[in-house]
């Protein structure tokens, strides 16, 4: 049985591992943290269908129960080397594993909002990230810094994405619809709270996103303002006061809010950055680079090294899972071809 190493037990890693295991491959699945699916664990609902994130976590974790999969949690991979037709994987404790192919599914990390200090994250209690709000929604515990129900919540899009100043010129893709989703969820929980969304463009690219956006305005009365927020400060009553520009009206404005939610973008995770650099498959902004975005999106410049999911570029969960399956297919093809090559070599001898 061929051994395959999958690095990173997020949705991509788990889905690919499960697909490979079903095809009779032995999968070593490595995860740096002590738990799988850490990026989804604190999510409440998934867009666009508002399904429970916990259901998704359970279903994915169940796939790991296959006998061909060995899960190594708390195991950080520090080096990957190609040795002939095989790959050698070395973890932090110095253990090494020999495998036939490697799948990198090391994923993303959310942008650290503290880097945009002008927005006050980490300084004022009323400033949150979208991740913090998601947790509040999950536990139905939305309150402002004084422990009261917020009267107004303002979302700010594109924090750390499409932002030359923080060095990320790309669009993180999922924040637009996440804000719409969270706005609706807030409205469902707190119908009397005013919700504003400050945006540059709203990119409703996926199936039924546009409908959600329309519904948020018609049914939930979410108010959209085109413009970015330049700076946030606090008022004497511990509210957040921010300055922005309404670019449709062409006027600067100042507004008070109980909560300011920063829709943080996706960046290549630390593991992605390090391993991509080590393996010389580093693309833009520290993400891993595939061979060809159209036809060989899971292959890399090294034979036997594959990539899947948001270690390549920002991706939603459904895309990630589809990508993981495609990676599993590419790996099976690779292993088969390798096998038959070896056999034909042996025959010739």
């Amino acid at each position: 049985m061929k051994k395959i190493a999958v690095i990173g037990a997020g949705p991509a890693g788990i889905e690919a591992a499960s697909a490979l295991a079903l095809q009779n491959m032995e999968v070593l699945l490595f995860e740096k943290s002590s738990n799988t699916l850490t990026n989804i664990l604190d999510k409440a609902f998934l867009f666009p269908d508002f399904s429970l994130a916990n259901d998704m976590v359970d279903k994915l974790n169940k796939k790991l129960l296959h006998q061909n999969i060995t899960l190594h949690v708390g195991t950080e991979i520090v080096d990957i080397k190609q040795e002939g037709h095989e790959w050698k994987i070395i973890d932090k404790k110095g253990m090494s594993y020999i495998v036939a192919a490697v799948l990198l599914s090391t994923g993303y990390t959310p942008f650290d909002a503290k880097r945009k200090e002008e927005l006050g994250y980490g300084i004022y209690n009323g400033v949150l990230t979208s991740l913090d709000l998601e947790k509040m929604i999950k536990y139905n515990h939305i309150e402002n810094s004084m422990g009261e129900k917020p009267k107004r919540i303002v979302f700010l899009q594109c924090v750390g994405s499409r932002d030359e100043k923080s060095g990320n010129n790309y669009c993180s893709k999922i924040c637009c619809v996440t804000a719409v989703k969270q706005a609706i969820e807030v409205k469902k929980l707190l119908p009397d709270t005013e919700v504003y969304i400050f945006y540059m463009d709203l990119r409703m690219w996926g199936q039924s996103f546009e409908e959600m956006y329309r519904e948020s305005q018609e049914k939930y009365d979410v108010c959209y303002v085109r413009g970015r927020i330049s700076e946030a400060a606090t008022t004497f009553d511990k509210k957040i006061q921010f300055k922005a520009e309404d670019t449709l009206v062409g006027l600067p404005l100042k507004m008070n809010t109980d909560l300011l939610v920063l829709m943080v973008g996706m960046e290549a995770s630390c593991g992605t950055k390090q391993l991509a650099k080590k393996l010389s498959i580093e693309g833009d902004y520290g993400f891993a680079q595939s061979l060809n975005i159209h036809l060989q999106d899971n292959e890399t410049t090294s034979k036997g090294l594959f990539i899947a999911g948001s270690c390549k570029r920002p991706m939603g969960i459904n895309e990630t899972i589809a990508d993981a399956r495609s990676a599993a297919l590419a790996i099976m093809d690779y292993v088969d071809v390798n096998q038959s090559n070896k056999e034909s070599l042996a025959d010739n001898n």
Partner: peptide, 9 residues
């Protein structure tokens, strides 16, 4: 400094 509220704080 208004863009680095940590200093003001």
């Amino acid at each position: 400094s208004h863009l680095t509220p940590g200093i003001i704080d």
